[in-house]
């Protein structure tokens, strides 16, 4: 009887916590398709707010995707070879480098953005272009890519795979292409998902780095929260959820799969 009571109490508590997380999200999604928020859902269901969001903010949404995928490209080109190099060297210097590149995880985005502004803010055309935001995003997401790939390398003996390919006559570049990159694929995928998900919602850096002509989705969101009617702000949030939730779900499924080791059995 007592065990039953404890179970019910714990369940109720957990349900309340879940409600705290889910109810506002549902509220905002509903509000985005409600004709008049103050009169509630009885006022009718409409897509007019979503359409207005599209008219007002399509360019920021599109720009967000362009920047996110451009950033992903850079983190792939920079991060994957770097993860390989850092893992194979494995000496004190590479551990120090690893420390440095993970610092942006620990330092608030605001500080990094300020540092970038104070250093490169004077370069007018660079400052005004979306490349300025890209730079901030690369600094912020590079550690995720590098660590995600290095985690794969650390899980098994990638050094021996590399040496084996070398013994068979493959040049370093060829080994990297034929053996290392395919081997690191799960880490590259997980890292990519992470990078895109984080970037589509990145605000701290972007708010400081953007200009009126280089707004991104979250900047637009803040903008709509501050100056648009609640229905439009909600509709914009709904659009954001529609884009981000599949990515979040994919990330969790992927994380679940990775608990089953994919590497060779020993």
């Amino acid at each position: 009887m007592r065990a039953r009571a404890i179970f019910v109490a714990q369940l109720t508590f957990t349900l309340l916590v879940a409600a705290f997380l889910i109810v506002p999200a549902l509220q905002s999604m509903l509000a985005g398709v409600t004709a008049n928020y103050f009169r509630g859902i009885r006022s009718g269901v409409t897509l007019q707010w979503v359409l207005q969001v599209w008219q007002l903010y399509a360019d920021t949404i599109l720009r967000s995707f362009v920047i996110a995928f451009a950033t992903l490209g850079v983190t792939l080109v920079v991060g994957v070879p770097a993860a390989y190099g850092l893992h194979l060297r494995g000496d004190r210097l590479s551990r120090a480098v690893e420390e440095i590149i993970t610092l942006p995880l620990a330092i608030p985005g605001l500080a990094i953005a300020l540092a970038l502004l104070l250093t490169y803010g004077g370069l007018g055309s660079f400052r005004r272009s979306w490349l300025f935001i890209l730079v901030g995003h690369v600094v912020f997401t590079l550690p995720f890519m590098v660590r995600s790939v290095m985690a794969i390398f650390a899980a098994t003996d990638v050094k021996t795979l590399d040496e084996t390919a070398a013994s068979l006559g493959a040049s370093p570049l060829r080994r990297f292409r034929d053996v290392i990159v395919p081997y690191a694929r799960p880490g590259i995928l997980a890292g990519s998902l992470m990078v895109v998900t984080l970037l589509l919602g990145e605000f701290n850096l972007t708010w400081m780095l953007h200009t009126p002509l280089t707004k991104t989705l979250p900047v637009g969101l803040a903008d709509s929260y501050a100056s648009m009617r609640l229905e439009i702000a909600s509709a914009y949030t709904l659009v954001f959820f529609v884009m981000i939730i599949p990515l979040l779900v994919a990330m969790q499924i992927f994380a679940g799969c990775r608990n089953e080791p994919a590497g060779p059995r020993r």
Partner: peptide, 14 residues
């Protein structure tokens, strides 16, 4: 032009 077999075999999983 050597051939090498490692203790772990290091077969390419891909």
């Amino acid at each position: 032009n050597v051939g090498m077999v490692f203790q772990s075999y290091a077969l390419f999983p891909n």
